[in-house]
């Protein structure tokens, strides 16, 4: 083999791959006739290929398909759930919306365990009680979280108390009073607020149309 020129070996390889051009093929054939080493090598290579190709084609065992299918991860349930979601996009979207809404509201409910109230002038605070002092007038809505409200003066606006109470007193409140004590009421309140906002957007849109 060492005696055979590299070019001829390259031609031989290309020829066996089936991509040698006719001129080089003629060169190769001419050379093979003159060199017995090259001829021997060529014959051995073709014989090798024939031997490898003669390797009997074997088949997979009879139970192969069944065993393979048993080995697959069981995804049937997930598959059918996905199908259901795809076939009911509106229900899915609505469910997702409600889930996220409640999650958000629930989180804000839990996070806001601290005493807080809407800052308005003239308000007094005693511990966790917000007081509208006697003879004072507070203009605007008031929201109190985790605290109580006592009105001795006058409050011109709505009152919302979360996790607290309105203590009956001699004052005057011109707006509505709403007390929210439980998570579900808080949720309900949150949803009502969102729909009010949405309604406001729609009605303002209507107004613009007119």
């Amino acid at each position: 083999m060492t005696t055979c020129p590299e070019e001829i070996i390259r031609f031989m390889d290309d020829y066996l791959d089936g991509d040698l051009n006719p001129e080089d093929e003629a060169v190769l054939k001419g050379y093979l006739e003159s060199c017995s080493d090259c001829r021997k090598m060529y014959h051995e290579l073709t014989k090798t290929i024939a031997l490898v190709q003669s390797a009997s084609h074997i088949q997979a065992p009879a139970s192969f398909v069944q065993k393979t299918m048993e080995r697959l991860p069981k995804e049937k349930k997930r598959g059918s759930a996905q199908r259901w979601f795809r076939q009911h996009p509106f229900v899915t979207a609505a469910a997702l919306f409600i889930l996220m809404m409640s999650a958000a509201l629930f989180t804000s409910f839990n996070e806001d365990q601290q005493f807080a109230f809407t800052k308005q002038p003239n308000l007094q605070v005693e511990g966790e009680t917000v007081i509208v002092p006697e003879g004072m007038v507070v203009d605007g809505d008031l929201t109190i979280r985790n605290g109580d409200l006592r009105v001795e003066g006058e409050l011109n606006g709505d009152v919302t108390i979360v996790n607290g109470q309105y203590m009956a007193s001699s004052g005057v409140i011109t707006g509505e009073i709403e007390e929210i004590d439980q998570i579900f009421e808080w949720l309900w309140y949150g949803i009502k607020e969102v729909s009010k906002d949405a309604a406001a957007i729609f009605s303002s849109g209507d107004n613009e149309d007119q």
Binding site: H57, Q59, V65, M69, L72, G79, Q82
Partner: peptide
């Protein structure tokens, strides 16, 4: 999500 359809693919290429 039709896992059974994969059996036919396995059938085709198994050998």
């Amino acid at each position: 999500g039709d896992q059974q359809a994969f059996a036919e693919i396995v059938e085709l290429y198994q050998h």
